[in-house]
Design a protein around this nucleic acid. Structure first.
Length: 271
DNA sequence: ACTGGCTCCTGAGGGC
DNA sequence: TGCCCTCAGGAGCCAG
């Protein structure tokens, strides 16, 4: 489910409920996520959350003296702000009760997500230390992308989805960014000129920024922390629009599986 | 160092 | 209604 805009939407939604608030109780109903939920999560009981950050598609819930909770939503995960008395839904796996009368509920049907407690510098954790730059920060430049693409014969779409190159660009926004940049998704990365990579950097930033503005994309089941969908689906140019007219030139949108992932493009607007 | 393929898991939707 | 098949927003791991 969630790509960077959806994770950022979630971060913003929980931040105000968490920051400065003390943890009353941690309830773990299922431990068997992608990695087992940390056995010692209850260590944060009685501690305060000091900040809610995001790195790539990971959420980092920092505490004052019990490390950082690292949460990843996988394909189907979400965090909701609820009341402790609200009934637990199927696939609600973790609840963090706060002393302000709310509870954060981690829900994840497919269980590809993560809930880990890290101690020390979280950026040195194996899951985080090899990540590429944030697409909305200054380090993601055309020059940087050009060097990352220089020796890669793989399709550009897969390269921009590679978290070692740049984080946060998932399957929806990779197709959307390539459309906005006018680049065919199968193009070999090393064959793309710097001018076109400059456009791709700008397009990636724009599509992610626009999607955050709309609260993310809800295709099937993404809900923000208040249980509301995102509205960016209406702004998608190509994703899940196979056979429908291009919003720019009316040519039917094409679809193929590229690198095991569903991919969409306009054969006229993209070269 | 890259590449493509496979895997984890559950649920939704389509075809018959 | 039910059954079977395909597909899904992530990303780590593997062999070649």
């Amino acid at each position: 489910m969630p790509e960077l805009p959806e994770v950022e939407t979630t971060r913003r939604g929980i931040e105000t409920h968490l920051t400065g608030v003390r943890v009353a109780e941690v309830i773990v109903r299922r431990h068997d996520l992608r990695q087992p939920v940390s056995k010692d999560l209850s260590t944060i009981e009685g501690r305060r959350f000091t900040a809610v950050r995001r790195r790539s598609k990971y959420l980092l819930l920092e505490t004052d003296d019990a490390g950082t909770l690292l949460i990843h939503l996988g394909m189907s995960g979400s965090l909701r702000v609820v009341f402790p008395s609200d009934p637990w839904k199927l696939h609600d796996h973790v609840g963090i009760t706060l002393d302000n009368g709310r509870q954060i509920r981690f829900h994840d049907p497919r269980r590809f997500g993560l809930v880990l407690r890290l101690t020390g510098d979280p950026m040195r954790h194996p899951l985080l230390k090899k990540l590429g730059p944030e697409p909305l920060e200054d380090a993601f430049t055309a020059g940087y992308l050009q060097s990352a693409c220089a020796k890669r014969s793989a399709a550009i779409k897969g390269v921009i989805m590679d978290a070692k190159v740049v984080v946060g660009v998932g399957n929806i926004y990779a197709s959307e960014a390539l459309f906005r940049a006018g680049i065919l998704p199968r193009t070999q990365a090393r064959r793309i000129s710097k001018v076109r990579l400059t456009r791709l950097v700008a397009a990636s930033r724009e599509v992610l920024t626009d999607a955050i503005q709309e609260g993310g994309t809800t295709l099937r089941d993404f809900l923000n922390s208040d249980g509301e969908p995102g509205y960016f689906k209406q702004r998608l140019f190509v994703y899940e629009r196979k056979g429908q007219p291009c919003r720019v030139c009316a040519t039917p949108i094409r679809h193929a599986v590229i690198g095991q992932r569903s991919t969409y493009w306009c054969p006229k607007c993209q070269k």
